[in-house]
Amino acid sequence: MTDTLSPATTGATGRRAPSAGNLLPIIGVVVAAVAVVLPILVDDFAFNYLMSYTVITCILALTMHLLMGLAGVFSLGQAAMFGAGAYAAVVIIGQTGIDGTLGLFLVAAVGAVIGILMGLVTLRTTDLYLALTTLAFGYIVENLVRNSDWLGGPQGITGFDITFAGSYLDEPKLLYWVGLGFLYLLIVIIMSVRRSKVGRALMATRESPIAARSIGIDTRRYKLLAFGVAGAFAAVAGGLYTAYALVVDPSVFGIDLTLSVLAIAIVGGLRSMPGIIVVAIVLTYFRNSAETFGASQYVLLIYGLLIVLTLRFLPQGLGGLLTSPRVLAATRSIRARFHGGTQ
């Protein structure tokens, strides 16, 4: 107790900050490459259709990771961003006729604006209130859209074409690849940000706003940045969804969507990108199978149960298992065995 200032002698056995193993990046790149050629390997319409939906879900779920996991902003407003993107895509690409190569970026811009707006409105509040304010945002946008004839009212809009580079984006393979492109872009951005100044600023904002400000971090600015980026990508996901569904109606703002993404993010682990991606794929597949087997009415019940049980018994989600002390200790002991116990 007297030498608390001297280096701890227990350094070797102490828990270390989680670090990605050497193998993980290689696995990631291989999986990413396989994902690109997958539609060629498995040339099946239904499969590709499902895959394109999965990719859209992954994008949306990762915006949740960005906001909740990195910035520590517990937002339930993803549906508002997603829905705004869906309507924006129909108006910009479907009705105005701007090609998706440019149009999707305009959709992203709309989403970023919505996200930042949501950020500005809600950032004066914290935690619970912030979660509910962002949720309220969704209800407001839904209510406004439902009552606007211009956007088709409660029936929504059908009979539009979403094009990308001159081709129709409802072709599952193309939709999948375009979605995958945006997904990879988002993954690269998240990974880069995490290792950069902005990532540390977000971490600081999340862990201790007071301390963050004491080292010159404008916490508001970084939260807004997170809202902007999340909004942009959630909107793109919404835009791609219109090409998938060929219809857009106020249900894109619904609690169903919020709940699905929330379940994915919580079960996957808010702080874990791989966890969220894996769970997004698994749950989308599950949902699709449930529909095939006529069990789709149980899907939301199960999502709700997953949220409750995960928060109760596995608060860090499945991704948290990768960094939990016990798993880390086990990894260390295995490594030690391989390297003659240097660690």
């Binding site: 950069s196 902005v198 540390r200 600023a201 971490m203 600081a204």
Partner: peptide, 17 residues
């Protein structure tokens, strides 16, 4: 994180490592 104010490479270099 303490060195925040001394690091400046602009957003493009943040978003793409």
């Amino acid at each position: 994180a303490g060195r925040h104010r001394h690091i400046d490479y602009g957003f493009p270099h943040t978003f793409f490592y």
